[in-house]
């Protein structure tokens, strides 16, 4: 057991700022994701989703994807989450009545827990046991916006146009569907 002090030395040298920030953002994502999934009140779930999305933006920043992180904060937290909160407020009553559910509710809960744990375990096993061909990008770029903009205007131009048309059609369709018909 004389190698134990060497182990302690290794442990101390293996922890640094990047790792601590990664652990913090991962704990934020998983913890508030659990809050989203498990909370009974819809507004609490929406707040949990907010922190989940913010933690994911932090993970993008750790992965040197600054534009995706900013897009995540602006589109998801600023747009999609606002829409979801409006949906929660427009579809919930003042007194939250317990809806009647079918007899299979508890079965559905058990099956959900089992399938969720099975999903997480199987995917984690596959991700850990696979020998990935890891080619980290050689130099972390100063910013990715220029490269992403160039690629969107050259290689991915068709997909860019199609996405723009799809967004237009989706929002016109959403406005038509949501309008009350008399």
């Amino acid at each position: 057991m004389e190698q134990i002090p060497q182990i302690l030395n290794d442990l101390q040298s293996n922890v640094d700022f990047y790792g601590i920030v990664f652990i913090m953002f991962s704990a934020l994502v998983v913890g508030s994701g659990l809050m989203t999934v498990l909370s009974k009140k819809m507004m609490h779930a929406a707040v949990g989703l907010l922190f989940t999305l913010f933690g994911i933006a932090g993970l993008y920043a750790l992965l040197a994807a600054d534009f995706i992180a900013i897009t995540q904060v602006m589109v998801y937290i600023g747009g999609i989450l606002t829409l979801i909160i409006f949906g929660v407020m427009l579809t919930s009553r003042v007194t939250d009545i317990e809806r009647k559910t079918d007899a299979f509710a508890s079965v559905s809960n058990t099956a959900g827990v089992a399938i969720g744990i099975a999903c997480a375990a199987f995917l984690s096993y596959v991700f850990v046991s696979t020998k990935w061909l890891e080619i980290p990008v050689a130099t972390i770029p100063d910013g990715t916006i220029t490269q992403i903009g160039t690629l969107l205007m050259t290689n991915y131009f068709a997909a860019f146009i199609v996405a723009a048309v799809l967004l237009l059609i989706a929002f016109i369709g959403a406005a038509l569907i949501a309008r009350r018909k008399n």
Partner: peptide
């Protein structure tokens, strides 16, 4: 693995 856990949470929410 963080993605896998998030995926499992989403599947759980959709099922239950």
């Amino acid at each position: 693995i963080v993605g896998a856990i998030l995926f499992a949470l989403g599947v759980f929410a959709i099922i239950t």
